[in-house]
Design a protein around this nucleic acid. Structure first.
Length: 609
DNA sequence: TTTCAGTTGGTCAG
DNA sequence: CTGACCAACTGAAA
């Protein structure tokens, strides 16, 4: 009697640090594996080529730990097995060492992930390992959304709604329960990789220079992540922050990772049916803290500790119940399902455009504006121009504005409070992001949105490439949104939500005692009052004290003046009408197009092709 | 061709 | 709190 061939299934966790509602995990377990090995591999592209601050590192490690514990709870012999080498390099070694027959993972449509996963699939096919890939990070397969949108990037909610209407009438599949049991891995001896050659970070398949570490500034001790393939204790464990060179004291976020945390948070909101039914994003306060006005579930969607379909269906069930009880619900796009559809829109736009989606250069869907601090072209960077900086410093003044914005010392308390909250906690409300993004780009500094997106990439615990890039395009009026004359005031907008200035008092504590009359414009407070309230408004923010005590910077420019300058410049840029893939942008000749004509008139609007 | 809507502006009058 | 106006964008519908 022939024995059945063993099924040794390697499950590769990446965007899905959960057990509930995972189509890929479900597919893996449906194979009835004789052996099941759930792994994570540190991808050097994430570790060194993406900007990741301490708060997001911490959130990721917490989420990995929670997942590992969940596996152990279902099967004491199980855990999340962390492999410290690049996937393209280490996966072939794993299927040799462990006799792997199947590789299963969740589909990831990000441009880099597609390239990496494509390489992995080819290697697996060569080795005779069967590969199963399932969509599960989004409500719908985003490639399917793109197809239903005529192959074009989704540029509006209307397009997204039409497209998803053609996929199951706009209703995603119901979530799948978490597994109640998990098969065994190999024995400890068989799992051991001591005999396997370790290639360190194994930075194969990366086009970029493996020597650069974009996160070097965050590492206070030596990064030892790639010291050993099974980790410092040889147990494939989740690293401590110290192992990746991060000082735990740098982690200040109060937001916790892990599937259990996500499901508890969600359940709490779902129990509040009024909140779910009436939720309208524009009516949630960007100044609220403890409790926040929105769900804070975005980092969990990013790491996959919460399934977006579970989120959608739990909300949908509440809304159906309310509807039956004749209670009104908010509608798309401002309600909760609408928020999730915006996520689909950005994912699908990214999927349709591919790699150029993340920048201006070569991106056909993004409008070109003559910003300060433009990105260098890929050619210039490849030729090593510009002493390591990835952007052109066309204006020293604008670079100072950018750095002051990043550090939360612009002299506009609403902006500074938000930027400090972002740095400390890794999260700010969506409308807060609007405020600071508008201020940096079209409504203040006229600095390229790409600089702002890089700062958000580093600091946000919920950083999702497609959503971050898409929202920066939106706010800078370079794609998705065009009403550049709608400009956020760093004074009036915050005041509308928080007339007492409580957000400012919390994150700019030097201003805590200021009267609410001056809290948004402390430079207007009489000197005597400034003394009385224990903070002088002076200097450029490079120091937080002087010989008199605490100081807060003067505003770095006259906002009304800057708003006028930016508005005129935006008007001109729209008339020039260049986009990221135009010849003038690629060869640098755009500068000519932005000058005025000989007779002083605006240049003719560029013809659409 | 014109009209109108577009997740989330600011200001001022009533 | 609501609505008119500001000066005016794009894209889809009429």
């Amino acid at each position: 009697m022939p024995t059945a061939k063993p099924k040794i299934v390697l499950y590769w966790h990446r965007t899905d640090l959960r057990l509930h509602d995972s189509p890929a995990l479900n597919a893996a377990l449906s194979l009835n594996p004789t052996t099941f090995i759930p792994i994570w591999t540190w991808d050097p592209h994430y570790v060194y080529k993406s900007r990741v601050g301490p708060n997001r590192w911490s959130f990721l490690l917490e989420s990995q730990k929670a997942l590992s514990t969940s596996y152990s709870n279902l099967n004491p012999r199980q855990q999340l097995w962390l492999i410290r080498e690049a996937p393209q390099s280490v996966l072939p070694k794993l299927w040799n060492a462990w006799g792997v027959t199947h590789l299963v993972f969740e589909k990831d449509e990000d441009a880099y992930a597609r390239e990496r996963d494509g390489a992995v699939v080819r290697l697996a096919e060569e080795a005779g390992v069967e590969v199963i890939v399932k969509s599960g990070r989004t409500l719908f397969d985003v490639d399917e959304i793109v197809r239903k949108n005529g192959g074009k990037p989704t540029m509006s909610m209307a397009q997204v709604e039409k497209a998803v209407e053609k996929i199951g009438n706009g209703v995603p599949e119901r979530p799948i329960d978490a597994p109640s049991s998990i098969p065994d891995p190999l024995t400890r001896d068989e799992m051991d990789l001591k005999g396997v050659k370790h290639d360190g970070r194994g930075d194969v398949g990366s086009k970029s220079d493996p020597g650069t570490d974009m996160n070097a500034d965050h590492r206070s001790t030596t990064d030892k992540q790639y010291a050993g393939i099974m980790g410092p204790k040889g147990d494939f464990g989740v690293p401590a922050l110290e192992e990746i060179g991060i000082d735990p004291a740098e982690v200040q976020t109060p937001h916790r990772g892990g599937e259990n945390v996500a499901l508890e948070l969600l359940a709490g909101y779902i129990a509040d049916e009024e909140y779910i039914g009436r939720f309208e994003k524009p009516n949630t306060s960007p100044a609220a803290f403890e409790p926040q006005s929105t769900t804070l579930l975005s980092p969990h969607l990013h790491f996959g500790t919460l399934s977006v379909r579970k989120f959608w269906w739990d909300v949908q069930d509440v809304m159906e119940k309310r509807k039956k009880a004749k209670k009104s619900n908010a509608s798309i796009p401002t309600n909760l399902p609408g928020q999730l559809l915006f996520r689909e829109m950005y994912f699908a736009a990214h999927a349709a455009v591919g790699e150029p989606f993340c920048r201006t250069y070569g991106n056909p869907m993004v409008r070109f504006i003559d910003w300060h601090l433009q990105s260098k072209t890929p050619e210039d960077i490849a030729h090593g121009e510009g002493e390591g900086k990835l952007y052109e410093v066309d204006s020293d003044e604008a670079e100072v504005w950018f750095l002051r914005w990043k550090e939360g010392r612009t002299g506009f308390p609403w902006i500074d409070a938000l930027m400090r909250q972002l740095k400390q906690e890794g999260w700010i409300h969506h409308l807060g992001r609007h405020s600071v993004a508008c201020f940096l780009t079209r409504g203040g500094c006229y600095v390229s949105w790409e600089r702002g997106a890089e700062v958000f990439e580093e600091m946000l615990i919920d950083h999702e490439t497609a959503c971050n890039i898409g929202n920066w395009m939106w706010l800078s009026c370079t794609a998705f949104f065009a009403q550049f004359y709608r400009c956020y005031s760093p004074i009036a907008f915050g005041k509308k939500w928080d007339p007492e200035g409580n957000l400012i008092r919390r994150y700019c504590p030097e201003l805590a005692k200021f009267d609410k009359k001056y809290i948004y414009e402390p430079w207007r407070a009489p000197i005597a009052d400034q003394r009385k309230w224990g903070c002088r408004v002076t200097g450029d923010g490079s120091s937080s004290t002087n010989e008199d005590g605490k100081i807060y910077p003067k505003p770095m420019f006259d906002f009304d003046e800057r708003r006028t300058i930016c508005l005129d410049a935006m008007k001109n840029a729209y008339h020039v009408g260049l986009h990221g893939n135009d010849k003038e942008v690629k060869d640098g000749s755009w500068r000519k197009a932005f000058g005025l004509d000989e007779d002083g008139k605006r240049p003719k609007k560029k013809q659409k092709t």
